[in-house]
Design a protein around this nucleic acid. Structure first.
Lengths: 219, 219
DNA sequence: TAGATTGTTAATCGATTAACAATC
DNA sequence: TAGATTGTTAATCGATTAACAATC
């Protein structure tokens, strides 16, 4: 398995989603130039990225939409079932749990957990929220490879420790905190506040007329 | 205003949040080594990043927690009020709207919009959900600098067009689609499915014992 | 002082972009 | 064929890491 640079890996998924949409739209062939237009990316970069997943393009023609789509699905493992537990059934947790878009890529949330006794026992979309005390045992027994943390920052590390101890392989972390995990565990931080912070910086440095300069703004 | 590379800008926010926590914890001084330990980053990188926001460290001593925190707050504009509209009051939209963590960094969502007539008129946390037809006028009148899109992919571009036309300066996009906007508009895509896809790839390429060939999983 | 830590310069690393021969 | 598009190599760009003099 050829190593794929992280930025390229993320783009591969964008290509996959684009191809899925093109396929549903009845398109048979697509060129790197056309993909670049739709995704606002350099066609050369797209071609380069696609070399990480085998060769499919034909000079003068372009890429077969369905073939490339299937190849990407295989490479990214999007066709595999990925069972997961979700810990922290707040609004964000519920949003992720109920979002059908992830199921298309193989995500199956098979266990909901919370530490709040008023939530434990509630039924949500056919699943009963369990006490966090049962988390480790559940992961071990069901051999759950993926953990989703939508718990508050204060308890996120504790949750991660339980998951790791129970043998989980990957963590999707939405808590705004840097988790300490062994390096064989793969972790993805969706730190939404970072996005807000970068937009904040852009706003005050872009001369937006709708932002009222406090006193220090003049360049 | 010195230009700040994007990855450095994102880390600056991590430093800010760390300092906020250290400050609340009563810490007065912190070194780049200590920050590196807590954030799992190279101390040299931290020192380098911090040069983008003025000089604060003292050799042999470290950084003054409060001073550096305040400086970062100013640089990132986190103390400024950032008024925003949110379009698409589904579960994710509600999660973002009701998350108090963003308010700490200056976010103020002052308008909720949806195209679903059964939602328009409902009251949510003191605000009435408005019809998307009023979006442009609202932005113009209130001079709203920031738009948050939590609408479905299919309508996201249309929403963005209205926002841009009304003079919005920045867009925080949660819809899984590449939006076309003029290049003077700053945009941040929080494409959560990318995270899932990278974890998916990691799972199938890391030899996770809890991941089995698909046929074993059928039941 | 002696030692720890900064800010900065230089070296390394990795990713993007450009160029173009090969190809259909 | 002529022309468009690929895959790949080389050049460029930018970010990270290493090294170390300056400093308190």
């Amino acid at each position: 398995m050829k190593k794929i640079p992280k930025p390229a890996l993320e783009r591969l998924f964008l290509y996959y989603r684009l191809l899925l949409s093109a396929h549903n739209n009845g398109e048979k062939i697509i060129s790197s130039v056309e993909m670049g237009k739709r995704l606002d990316l350099d066609p050369a970069q797209i071609r380069k990225d696609l070399t990480y997943c085998g060769e499919f393009g034909k000079p003068r023609i372009g890429y077969r939409v369905e073939g490339l789509m299937n190849e990407l699905q295989t490479v990214l493992g999007l066709g595999e079932r990925k069972q997961a537990v979700l810990v922290g059934v707040g609004r964000l947790g519920m949003a992720i749990y109920s979002y059908s878009g992830f199921a298309k890529f193989g995500l199956e949330i098979i266990g909901l957990f919370d530490s709040d006794p008023t939530k434990v026992g509630l039924n949500l979309g056919g699943q009963t929220i369990m006490n966090i005390a049962q988390l480790g045992e559940f992961i071990r027994q069901k051999r759950v490879p993926l953990g989703i943390i939508t718990a508050p920052a204060a308890s996120a590390q504790q949750v991660a420790d339980i998951m790791v101890d129970a043998g989980i392989c990957a963590i999707w972390n939405f808590a705004p905190v840097t988790l300490k995990v062994p390096e064989n565990i793969s972790i993805r931080n969706e730190d939404l506040a970072i996005g807000l912070a970068t937009l904040s910086w852009n706003l005050i440095n872009s001369g937006c007329p709708y932002i009222q300069p406090t006193e220090d703004e003049l360049d």
